[in-house]
């Protein structure tokens, strides 16, 4: 994993602070998230303290600091979905999984990400789990969906 970050960094020889965001974006793309190890490496490369990198990264919603779960739930918070109650949807998922947006469950199965319009406004409110879209959701419906993934896992596990 470090080597992936290192590879990204080789593309930015002698870079300074101004390259922090593009580097973070590339690292997230290759690793799926921003790890502590990656921050340490980036910090050394750019001469920026880890606390600063974390500060910058948490300012933007796009970065995550834990690996994605096996089931990555993207919750649309675009305008259409917002109007149709996506705030509730998000809250129900968070409650069902006992994690917040941007986090991953301890068993590594689920993660939640908040995204802007994912281009399915006709189906608002929408979530997308590992590429599978679920539309016209209600709080109860979304809880069922989460449960179905949990059951699927339990079945596999046994």
């Amino acid at each position: 994993m470090n080597t992936m970050t290192e590879q990204v960094l080789t593309r930015y020889p002698g870079a300074g602070r101004d390259k922090l965001i593009p580097i973070l974006q590339e690292v997230q793309e290759t690793d799926g998230y921003i790890s502590k190890e990656a921050v340490a490496l980036i910090g050394r490369h750019l001469g920026v303290p880890a606390s600063k990198i974390y500060g910058v990264a948490t300012f933007y919603n796009q970065f995550r600091f834990t690996p994605k779960g096996k089931y990555h739930i993207m919750v649309c918070r675009g305008t259409a979905c917002h109007v149709k109650g996506s705030a509730d949807i998000l809250e129900r998922i968070e409650r069902a999984l006992k994690i917040k947006a941007g986090e991953t469950s301890r068993d590594g199965l689920f993660s939640i990400e908040v995204v802007a319009c994912i281009g399915a406004c006709g189906l608002a409110p929408v979530i997308c789990v590992n590429g599978e879209y679920h539309g016209k959701l209600t709080g109860d419906a979304v809880e069922k969906i989460v449960k179905s993934y949990q059951e699927r896992e339990a079945a596999h596990g046994n």
């Binding site: 921050v39 974390y54 500060g55 300012f59």
Partner: peptide, 21 residues
């Protein structure tokens, strides 16, 4: 010259934290 702390988050979630809280 230590930089153990910095601002993190944004808006009403702004806080002072260490790296990775």
């Amino acid at each position: 010259g230590v930089s153990a702390l910095d601002f993190s988050g944004r808006g009403s979630k702004s806080r002072i934290s260490t790296a990775f809280d």
